[in-house]
Design a protein around this nucleic acid. Sequence first.
DNA 1: GGCCGCGCTGACAACGTTGTCTTTGGGAGC
DNA 2: GCTCCCAAAGACAACGTTGTCAGCGCGGCC
Lengths: 329, 329
Amino acid sequence: MKDVATLAGVALKTVSRVVNDEPGVSDATAVRVRTAIERLGYRRNESARVLRSGRTASIGLVIEDVADPFYSSLNRAVEDVATKHGSLVLSGSSAEDPVRERELVLTFCSRRVDGLIVVPAGFDHDYLLPELQAGIVTVFVDRPAEPGLDVDTVLCDNTGGARLAVGHLLAHGHRRIAFLGDSPSIFTARERLHGYRRALTAAGLAPDEHLISMGPPDRARVAFELDRMRALPDPPTALLTGNGRLTVATLRAFAGATSPRLALVGFDDFELSDLIVPGVTVIAQEPARLGRTAAELLFRRLFGHDGPPEHLRLPTHLITRGSGEIPPH
Amino acid sequence: MKDVATLAGVALKTVSRVVNDEPGVSDATAVRVRTAIERLGYRRNESARVLRSGRTASIGLVIEDVADPFYSSLNRAVEDVATKHGSLVLSGSSAEDPVRERELVLTFCSRRVDGLIVVPAGFDHDYLLPELQAGIVTVFVDRPAEPGLDVDTVLCDNTGGARLAVGHLLAHGHRRIAFLGDSPSIFTARERLHGYRRALTAAGLAPDEHLISMGPPDRARVAFELDRMRALPDPPTALLTGNGRLTVATLRAFAGATSPRLALVGFDDFELSDLIVPGVTVIAQEPARLGRTAAELLFRRLFGHDGPPEHLRLPTHLITRGSGEIPPH
DNA sequence: GGCCGCGCTGACAACGTTGTCTTTGGGAGC
DNA sequence: GCTCCCAAAGACAACGTTGTCAGCGCGGCC
């Protein structure tokens, strides 16, 4: 910058003004400065700018895994909104580990991001309090913060989605409907289980704990649980899987088994769900919409909005493709 | 930091030493400083640190789309390597737009990333020259830089993969093998086409231009081209698709059509390729390995390695699942 | 006892910007 | 011709660190 100023024969501050399109520079001077910038290949040092002015024009995004299709769609939606506002996205994978989540958030904060979008992995977000007080706007998405932390939150209607799924299976004549959910430590898994239970109860059926299994979405566990349920005296005729990975694991187990398939509704849509035979009936969320909504909430606050924290629920919808319409055998 | 120093009764520099684990601080003083840090909730301002010391501990990653499964796997692999080295990843989607690519790269540079990993969308990377000279280490991945720019590059063996695919189809008796590739502006599409041609020629068959179609992977175009080829007097009995998106579009076209399926080998593996019937035979690349290799190359240079630019080719391999073993009809 | 060296600590400048305040020059108005 | 004002431009400090060098006290060695 000093070199540019020297070459253009002006003071530092004038170069700064030109670079930032500030008023108070004559056209002739501006042209001279711009020429000098071009000649020297000058580019502003963002760190210095941040140091002086506070704004980093970047936001942090903590998701479970940047490679997971659900979260990578969310990531892309956040990126698009951020780009529209001239901001950059720092994203990191928490791998469902509270310690890693905390590390990522604190790293982002020490780099003075303007705001944070977090899919929380842990329960305890006390470590965020000083940051929030320091003015780092935070939005939780997909899962809420611990109850004590009242911040903007964008969730999907998990309970409603699960009830929709169970209702669909009930309408096709099923009475023995199993639920295969993710670990109960995960908020969405608990909510979906809750919706499943409520839908059964509302239909006058008592949930059968033998037909419920919660745990990580690995293939071995899924195959084991399906075998166990099938061996019951009164086995299930239908199944609701609690997220995309569980649905895929279930499909693999189905493909490897000889017994007839259960009717299946999966939570989360996924690519190629329509190309499998039969097509997989799903409760679709819109990850991109989750991300977009969260990002818009964030930027609204960054641009000065100062209302009370919002708690949004995005709708889910049923997409029938065949697997959920198999009758009970 | 000043407050911490005051509270601990030491000088600024001593706090700095404690924060950075530098030697030359007695245990007693260090404890006092650490207590003060805890009490005040102090966290180092990364911008100031960068301004002073130059190192940002962050790298920039430009890919086509953070939501694409291929590139998001690559992203994750880069993130893992970066985390291991205490670095953060800034990632952005170029959306196959050279202008956006340039913007992203320059934005990353103005934030003084230590290095760049780029999947180039454009041809012209002259804009990178000043940055390279300014010492920003760059690695190209998946596609090379323009010929004039001699930097570390990690590619996949596109030609070999395509030859492997064609060889497989030839071995199953096919003689009329079509190629459906992405836009010829994309390097990998050209290389794969080249491999396809060479494999046919090597087998004594003349490539038939009517059986070759290059263009964007949208469903309408793919369906149109397949119809066109099928209407030929001597239609293809087998098909090689040039990337994951084209394979998926082809499968959708197959599902919507009444005519018998062609034998199919797809470039790129994708989730659920095994659950479709018949399973999709593919030429698998390893996006995670591409990302990991590129990141390791980058960090090796950041840690001082100073050899000549490397040009790596990662192998591809054939995974047979059924679709590629359909005999000619 | 004097000198040297070493471990610990501190003072100060510098990194590249931008915010604030001041200076300069020229034109309009009386 | 003088004053006033305004646009343009500049001087300077400050942002929060870290690198450099200097200082201080203490123990060991001659």
